[in-house]
Design a protein around this nucleic acid. Structure first.
Lengths: 342, 342
DNA sequence: TTGTAGGCGTTATCAA
DNA sequence: TTGATAACGCCTACAA
């Protein structure tokens, strides 16, 4: 007998002088055990250092108390922040978080889904709604509850997020209200990324409503890095006529753009206005501070956790939970300078 | 009989006309099954859509192919980045990542250890080495391999990280070489945070070597936020004589300090030099750009994964893997302005 | 309120 | 090479 061997329910039961069933009940339904025996059992658990075995528990109860999350990457601050809150909330419900990343690839996401499924996750957090129908079908067939976060999705499915399109449109209207007519956009890569696509559409729609057709609104898609944002901005500034305001699909691109502007000797916002999206830490630190759209990523994570738990427990759930966003006006948006040519 | 019921080994065995043992072998040791029967079995697995049950497998094999990580918070970019690389590397080895956070609290870390242990993780990633001996003992008793990352630890245990003390000392020497004599430091909270403590010691040691005793080097500890950094900086600037260089325990504090400097009308680096640590994105974006210490967090995550896998497989492992750091000289460190009083 | 006992799906040890 | 069969640790009717 190894004194270090992992204690089992049996050991605890013996030590406390009860049956394994009672010990199990103490753990899973304490109120179904009388206080005095419960105390004795807890005491035994304590001294033996017992912790329930996951395999045994999963096997017998058909639940794992594990929730999975497949996100593009934790390297993106917005997902890191959301995931942190998601994990904390989950933890309060006694659930543990399994993390995988897709690197924005639907194929990789699907692989990870299978991993999650074989791990028996009770539920799954996904980002957005842009994925092959087959992936969705896979989860349905497996009976794994899941939801999309960071946007509001389409016809069916559960979502907790915000209306990227409307938020982007709102910001665009603000830009237009300042008097800008020559807009441009640096969008995130929209392929299989509904958040980026929605933001682009939002900008276009608002512009169109103001009488600016799509072909007068140059859009460049750029990967999520400062450098790509800078490069795109450089290209935009080479256009004639030069845009007076550049809307960016996220703060990282916007900051990249700002750096390029400085490099080009363009003052922000005097020579050109720049806006971002997300309101990550960066936004409040650059000079001038970035005008952007605030998204409460931590609230999103929390709400997602609560919704998913409900889904898992088969409780009543509304299909969408909308997280409010807000435009944060700071220093990078100003009125356009009158065209020197006119 | 529900056609959607999850198929079991038994179902496959029956369909293929073999025993469950053979099916199991097909999955775990294919070469111990003759090709023809193996084919038949695989066929059955395919058509039934069988995937092994995690609980059953964990219970019988005593292994989970799951690795845990307990980090302070993903909200800190350095951990988010490291964790992302850690997860990717793990994934290549067929392991899945379970994530928990401690919020820098040893008690909470311990709780999460127990969660991880009861989940049967094959190995565990921890941050640093500052924790109660009881926590370490717990893992030892459970026979769970673990390692500390982001520093190099003490007498025993496995580590992949860097020498925070030496790196901080190196940067301090650089500052001294510029001619500064009146240094000050804004350190991270050092309580139960060896990274912060080591950095503080490094600064102090280097200063002392240069003939500046500890009591002439004011140090304020501040939580990981811009505001706390700003507040601490304000207090430091109120000192007489005023420090000419402020070394910060991390980039977030440094950026907070920079913001306060601007608020106070102090130019950086003309009126006061400021340095950071970590080289997160922020550092390259503020104006002027921050002089700091670059830490390759992603390499750390990768190296940690490889080391942990080795530990799990009981392969030969060296006790410490050191990740090189580098001082990045940018714009916030300059020579001190001659004292107007002298 | 507590105990008995069967079963969850898989692996692993023996034999055959 | 394959097949019985006994664990693995826990949960949960059902009984007492």
């Amino acid at each position: 007998m190894n004194e270090f061997a992992k204690p089992t329910l049996d050991d605890v039961a013996r030590a406390a002088g009860v049956s394994t069933a009672t010990v199990s009940r103490c753990l899973n339904a304490p109120d179904r055990v009388i206080a005095t025996t419960r105390e004795r059992v807890m005491q035994a658990i304590e001294t033996l250092g017992y912790t329930p075995d996951f395999g045994g528990r999963a096997l017998a109860s058909r639940r794992t108390n594990t929730v999975g999350a497949i996100i593009p990457t934790m390297d993106n601050a917005i997902f890191a922040r959301g995931l942190q809150s998601f994990q904390e909330a989950l933890s309060r419900f006694g659930k543990t978080l399994l993390v995988a990343s897709s690197g924005y690839s639907p194929a990789r996401e699907r692989e990870q889904m299978e991993v999650m499924a074989s791990r028996g996750v009770d539920g799954l957090l996904l980002i957005g709604s842009a994925r092959p129908e087959a992936s969705v079908e896979f989860l349905r067939r497996r009976g794994i509850p899941f939801l999309g976060a960071w946007n509001l999705g389409g016809e069916d499915g559960y979502f907790v997020g915000f209306d990227n399109r409307a938020a982007a449109a709102g910001l665009t209207e603000k830009v237009l209200a300042k008097g800008h007519r020559r807009l441009a956009m640096i969008a995130g890569i929209t392929e299989m990324n509904d958040r980026a696509a929605d933001r682009m559409e939002g900008v276009r729609a608002a512009a169109e409503r103001a009488g600016i057709p799509a072909d007068e609104l140059p859009v460049i898609e750029a990967a999520y890095t400062f450098d790509e944002g800078a490069k795109a901005f450089g290209n935009l500034m080479a256009l004639a006529p030069r845009p007076t305001a550049v809307l960016c699909g996220n703060d990282v691109l916007a900051v990249g753009a700002m750096q390029k502007a400085r490099e080009l000797g363009l003052r922000v916002p005097e020579d050109v206005s720049i806006t971002g999206f997300d309101d990550i830490d960066l936004a409040g630190v650059v000079d001038p501070k970035l005008t952007t759209v605030r998204v409460p990523h931590n609230r999103m994570g929390e709400a997602a956790a609560e919704m998913l738990i409900r889904l898992i427990n088969k409780e009543q759930v509304e299909r969408r939970i909308e997280i409010p966003t807000a435009i944060v006006e700071r220093g990078t948006l100003g009125p356009p300078t009158p065209d020197p040519a006119t």
